[in-house]
Design a binder for these strands. Sequence first.
DNA 1: CGTATTTGACCTGG
DNA 2: CCAGGTCAAATACG
Length: 325
Amino acid sequence: MDLSSLVEVLMHGEEQLRQLEACLDVHSPVEHKKQLVLQAQSHFKRAISMAKSIDPERFRQGPGASAAALDSPRSNSGGSDNSDKALKEQERREMCKKRKTLPKWTSQIRISSSEGVDGLDDGHSWRKYGQKEILGAKYPRGYFRCTHRNTVGCFAMKQVQRSDDDPSVFDITYRGEHTCPQKPRTVATSALHRPDIHQSQQRPRQDQQLLLSFQTSLKVKTEGSSFEDPDQNSPFSFSSTPMSTLCTPPTPENKFMGSFSPSPCRASSFGEAPPLHITESDLSDFISATTSAATSSAMDIAFMLDSVGFDPAFHFDASSFLHNL
DNA sequence: CGTATTTGACCTGG
DNA sequence: CCAGGTCAAATACG
């Protein structure tokens, strides 16, 4: 556990706070602010545990938080005997429609070798459903959708595209908000972390990388839905997005396609509510509704439960998250 | 054995 | 027609 990773995590946290500050007096959706807070919190938590792990002796006492296991077996609302071509066509068509209306935003994140996939997991489980070579890009683009799409009708999706020139940068495009609960895992581990047995680790200029990372790590632009936040100003110079608005990432996330970097997975601490609920119902309607009314995520959840109609004792499986090769 | 990923075929919008 | 996005059969995984 080296110091530079620690610094990096701290910087992420700081950046989140900075963005939050920028958002504060603007009329941006509460959800965004909450997200920022949560992200910052998780970064700091992580930083703390990293720091502790540097000198474990000093901080020995309760083995950290309880591993509040909220996992439970899945409930399957079976009854999936469909298979009518017409029906599938229908579904597909619906999908297309959704595709258009779904809010979409891009966030560019950098994965440092030290961090790996770590901590960038937003606590959602994604299932990969495709990969495609993209025209002018070296690396293929991976297509993911929420694992619980069929169980709870969560239509969140994301695309992960590795940057051409800097392999440690990933462009992640999210589409749609999760309507499913997040992975509730509380993680307080990382006490003992062997220096990974990485073969080809790019360790050298980490400090300089940090700066770079600081600049590019959290660039996010939103489109589709209209969450404006014209005030979002970062001290950086990369605002190359003319008309689209810069916003905050609901959650940075990653999980890339068949490439290098093995790594375990890890969730940001505390589960929290999905920020928005979006269904096929009129999106804009909903948005205006949210901006004016939605004040608590809890409420959103209730709303969601309500409208989707699964029982509150809902449980899902967060058990398996894997690493790719 | 159930789930997740891989991967080529297929579909669709521009 | 093509590029990008998705499906689904075949595999891999645990």
